[in-house]
Amino acid sequence: MTEKTDLLTMFKSVAENVDKKSFDDVTRESIITDLGIDSLSMMQIVGDMETELDLQIPDEDLVEIVTVGDLCSKLEHRIGA
């Protein structure tokens, strides 16, 4: 549970750093498109989180990410792998 919360916190921090706006209200259920994050910012956020966690989500898995929770789950899966 702590790990899940931490990844959500990390997402908010990284997204804020990339897009220079607050993502405080974001939950795991938030749909990334609804957050006004475009393709390039999305790839930057994913890349920055991967770098921070020292892991990489396979490209083919990226296309399945719709919500913030989907991204966190992909990262959790790699952490646990």
Binding site: I32, T33, D38, S39, L40, M42, M43, Q44, V46, G47, D48, E50, T51, Q56, D59, L62, V63, V66
Partner: peptide, 25 residues
């Protein structure tokens, strides 16, 4: 849309060019 752009444009273009996502950061 965003997902199609990533899947069908961004990732294939980088792959063809031999650029990793990490190198683009």
């Amino acid at each position: 849309d965003r997902d199609v752009f990533i899947r069908k444009v961004y990732l294939p273009v980088l792959k063809y060019l031999g650029i990793s996502r990490r190198e683009m950061l």
